[in-house]
Design a protein around this nucleic acid. Sequence first.
DNA 1: TTTTGTTTCAACCATTTGGTTAAAACAAAA
DNA 2: TTTTGTTTTAACCAAATGGTTGAAACAAAA
Lengths: 212, 212
Amino acid sequence: MEHEQDTSPTELKIFEAARDVFQSKGLEGARMQEIADKAEINKSMLHYYYRTKEKLFEKVYQLSIIKVIPQIVSLLNEELPLEQKLRHFSEKYLEIIRANPDIPLFVLHEMNKNPNRIKTFMLNEIGKKIQPFLNQIREERSKGNTVDLPAEQILVNMMSLMVFPFIGRPILQVILNQDEETYNRFLDERVRFLPDYVVGMVMKPKGSDGNL
Amino acid sequence: MEHEQDTSPTELKIFEAARDVFQSKGLEGARMQEIADKAEINKSMLHYYYRTKEKLFEKVYQLSIIKVIPQIVSLLNEELPLEQKLRHFSEKYLEIIRANPDIPLFVLHEMNKNPNRIKTFMLNEIGKKIQPFLNQIREERSKGNTVDLPAEQILVNMMSLMVFPFIGRPILQVILNQDEETYNRFLDERVRFLPDYVVGMVMKPKGSDGNL
DNA sequence: TTTTGTTTCAACCATTTGGTTAAAACAAAA
DNA sequence: TTTTGTTTTAACCAAATGGTTGAAACAAAA
């Protein structure tokens, strides 16, 4: 019998349960018992496979980040003219977030509590990888092809429009007085129009001076 | 001697310490001992003034919400033409968030964990109060004065651009490779240009068909 | 000064929670 | 069938944490 069977079905069930619970309750809000119940196994199985809560959490946390950040960053390093890159970036970014809507708020809360945790396994890597993209924007801006804002502000504008509706869902649903299904349709609509909208927001149409 | 001396300085110190700790660690992440230490009082004082952790948290949570939401909603109910209202809204909104940068992430995390908590003390009130504003947008949109998007999407666009840079600070600082001070300047810059930017994003300049 | 009510604290308690252990059930090979 | 290693479990443990208590310090009034 193998010692490492890749991952046993039990281990996988535990991980998935842990992911769900940690992402909705956070590290301290999560109870090992709750994870065990959700995975339909005995509590001591958690420790058999993952030793400690901390280690189990760390795995969930790192995989959550890895599932989102590198994908997004890599979108910015393709060899494409700015306008096409922006559209492509927006479409893929929205796909990724839509498939993992709980990750951003989870990661932000945990980073906010403990900014050092992430530094242990990534850091400057990300910061450096987006420089070429920022430079591309700066270049186009200097030619008058984009809205007249610093590249960083443009990037944050785009990210804001795409992520916040997912992160802010709990409060936005209250403010807009929408039930789950209505808000899902709201997000669907958003995913549809945003890529074009983002491009239009960044690129200045030729022969126009834009309206900002 | 009075029984209710408004609030004693000790009680205030406790509340402020609790606010800081709860807002950065969340309900479950916060330790009563840590709150006591930060307030420079003995732990049993917490219970003397607030009975339980739950009650202390509830006060912090409710006051956090009350400090932000009603202010913002009321901005949308002033009697002003749309363009002026948008500018005024953006300016004030940014002021409020800048003065309370930790509240949004805190409230969102707690709402996400327990959406019922808020329902006990507000709910439809907010949803109803913004209807007039949404209608005002719809009216202007039908006259072709705004960008061609549903009113809800426009509102969410505005909120996204303003709040996310504060909520997303931990990750944005990593992505942009900025230290605290640089990011503060980044936010300053943002607060300066956003009101005009938001107005330009929503209102279609007369005699133009916009670029979306 | 005495009294009376408030504010503060050190020591203690009960519960929760992460974590351990030893044995039983199980499956695969010999 | 016996053996051997793995998977699962119930019962238990120690530490952390929210919460209590009774007495001391203090301040204001009598």
